[in-house]
Nucleic acid binder design. Sequence first.
DNA 1: CTCTTGACTGAGG
DNA 2: GCCTCAGCCAAGA
Length: 109
Amino acid sequence: MKTETLNFFEKVYEVARQIPYGKVTSYGAIGNYLGAPRSARMVGYAMNGSVGKDVPAHRVVNKKGLLTGKHHFDGTNLMQQLLESEGVEIIDNQIQNLESVYWDPSKAL
DNA sequence: CTCTTGACTGAGG
DNA sequence: GCCTCAGCCAAGA
């Protein structure tokens, strides 16, 4: 089993899975940790297959703390609900006090 | 092989 | 501070 692209996806899942409770990170941060700071879109694209892989995709947002990927979830506010349940304050699809809940894989790992 | 799309980001107006 | 443009890389048609 080779396929480096698959490895990239797997890496994204693995990092996302390591996001601690009540914390969030950005696509760029994950991409940067994977050595692809310009592939933030790929990270998000990879998250498309996160369903069924036990990946807390709701903890992954864009750099502004905006829940850009909420449209991919079942409901309309499901992503926000999940994050709020973890103690993350969200207003209008945007994470409040982002710096306090921000989790940097490069620092944590 | 070429074109389009996309859960992004940074720079410029 | 908000809107637009361009760069980025991978997957699907």
